[in-house]
């Protein structure tokens, strides 16, 4: 299988381990990724609040490049990139005014026809059966909280991906690894997202509730598909515990890392050593076939 690949800035920077683990897993599953040549920023986080035109034109440029390079389906593992690409597609399709302005700006004609996949829909395409049949490590005692955040499922009318209030597709992927998804409450709550820098206390407060609920529902690990979610839940966790004592740590893994673990891939190659919250105890407990809470 072959997919176009739009890594976006996070996966080439702060979320390097997302990129590493995804490529490692896909290699194992005989799936090729072809990176869009000369891709640029999708405009996420800031463009749409600064310039409407830019927020469409930036993703449009990447979509046009993908098409020129003969791609039909592209993977945008970062939830924010996925969201921006889909929103841009929607706007270009429904709003002639913005399309004409975009085409003028980019000096190229835009045409629809690229299927944008997120991390979950990518694994659905590859086939959950394939993950299931290749799983090597016993996950049967691993309780997983699947955290979607906001960008993967909303706005539903545009993304048309899963139930915006109670999504379950990530749970299906997690089940394929043999782990047990927990039925918890905060899978689509806001983590504070880009307030991380300017209003850290908001992010800590919101993320704390998410972490608490996952632990409350006996999760051993939280799995995410968004670099923003990851950085808030992982990087801010130590401070959260410091400011609100009496809490346990919980490792935060990308979905691709969890799959990689179940396939028995090398931990270093999956970037499992790159997190703020140590993943070693979790990994150790897996190899002992016993899971620490």
């Amino acid at each position: 299988m072959n997919f176009g690949y739009y890594p976006g800035c996070s996966l080439s920077g702060t979320a390097k381990e997302f990129d590493l683990s995804l490529k490692e897993v896909l290699k194992y599953l005989d799936t090729d990724l072809q990176e869009i040549n000369d891709w640029c920023c999708c405009g996420a986080s800031s463009a749409h609040s600064a310039s409407h035109l830019l927020s469409v034109a930036l993703p449009a440029r990447n979509l046009i490049l993908a098409k020129e390079q003969g791609m039909k389906e592209i993977v945008a593992p970062c939830a924010a990139c996925f969201n921006r690409l889909k929103v841009a597609q929607h706007e270009l399709k429904t709003d002639d005014h913005i399309r004409i302005n975009t085409e003028e700006l980019l000096d190229t004609k835009y045409s629809d026809g690229i299927n944008v996949l997120n991390l979950i829909s990518l694994f659905q395409q590859i086939g959950l059966e394939k993950i299931k049949s290749n799983a090597k490590v016993d996950f049967s005692k691993l309780n997983v909280a699947c955290y979607y955040g906001c960008l993967l499922v909303r706005p539903h009318d545009i993304l048309k991906f899963d139930d915006p209030e109670n999504p379950t597709t990530m749970e299906e992927v997690v089940k394929a690894t043999g782990a047990k998804p927990v039925d918890w409450n905060f899978k689509v709550e806001c983590c504070g997202a880009a307030h991380s820098i300017a209003h850290t206390e908001i992010v800590e407060n919101l993320s704390m509730k998410i972490l608490d609920d996952a632990i409350n529902y006996k999760a051993n690990v939280i799995v995410v598909a968004c670099p923003m979610c990851h950085s808030n839940l992982d990087m801010r966790q130590k401070n959260i515990i410091k400011h609100n004592p009496g809490r346990n740590k919980i490792p935060i893994l990308y979905l691709s890392q969890l799959i990689g673990l179940s396939l028995g891939l090398d931990h270093k190659k999956l970037g499992l050593d790159l997190h703020f919250i140590d993943t070693a105890p979790l990994i150790a407990s897996l190899s002992e076939n016993e899971v620490a809470v």
């Binding site: 539903h156 048309k160 139930d163 915006p164 209030e165 109670n166 039925d183």
Partner: peptide
């Protein structure tokens, strides 16, 4: 109800049925 299965999009956030 699940969205897309009916004209009703549902209120998953109220946890009715759950």
């Amino acid at each position: 109800k699940k969205p897309d299965e009916s004209m009703i999009k549902g209120y998953g956030e109220y946890g009715y049925g759950k």
